[in-house]
Design a protein around this nucleic acid. Structure first.
Lengths: 112, 112
DNA sequence: CAAGGTGCTTCAGTGCCATAATACAGCCAC
DNA sequence: GTGGCTGTATTATGGCACTGAAGCACCTTG
């Protein structure tokens, strides 16, 4: 289904999770493009593509020649946006799918 | 996320749903590759690729030169397989995602 | 055999993704 | 200024998945 998710999207999710978890607090500098690329065994361009998403959303501030910094309130805004996406798009599909399979959310709550 | 889902997978899901809903009962002949392609505005090859999945799982029987027929018990096996996939793979990921977002299944049950 | 329907195979084209090698532009510590 | 670190732009290349078009192989019907 989505095992062949593009690398730049995986990185994007990974970074987003790290920001929301406070691994990169407000004002903190994100790993440089080259550093993260080396660490993840990816291409610097691919990492830049992942970072690009956050710039567009104004979640990170770019100081050219210095680095990229987490903007104030980024974690909260990220979490809010992700929630919105989940509730508006993913959850309805999940409900529909469960309905089609004859599954009930109540049953699943009991388990894991 | 999944708006750019490949056509052959969409068709596969669509056909699977039709089988489970009894639109194509056991022993019934599925629409021919060309017919379904024309109806859906897709390429015959793309439709064949969708049908291929069902052959591999032994859910349809191919009579070369004649057509493809729904195997006995296909609907039940399909439903069971889909449930298994959902519970084993999708649901854990969903739970993890909700946990990360601070959402609770109980809250969502109240709504839609 | 001939005709028309089936599924299936093959070759080509397209677009996205990822990588690579450079080079450029800005900032800071020395 | 120099060196070294930042992000960014350019160009080229290879791989992969998806789609498209034509033709082949098979079966039924007449």
């Amino acid at each position: 289904m989505s095992p062949n998710r593009p690398v730049y999207l995986k990185l994007r999710d990974q970074i987003a999770a790290a920001i929301m978890l406070g691994k990169y607090p407000e004002g903190a500098m994100l790993p440089s493009v080259r550093a993260l690329a080396a660490e993840q065994g990816a291409n610097p361009l691919t990492v830049a593509k992942a970072y690009q998403q956050f710039q567009n959303d104004g979640l990170v501030e770019v100081q050219r020649g210095v680095g990229m910094y987490v903007v104030k309130g980024a974690a909260e805004r990220l979490r809010a946006a992700e929630r919105e996406t989940f509730l508006q798009q993913e959850w309805p599909e999940i409900r529909e799918r469960m309905k089609q399979l004859g599954l009930n959310p109540a049953d699943l709550m009991q388990r894991g």
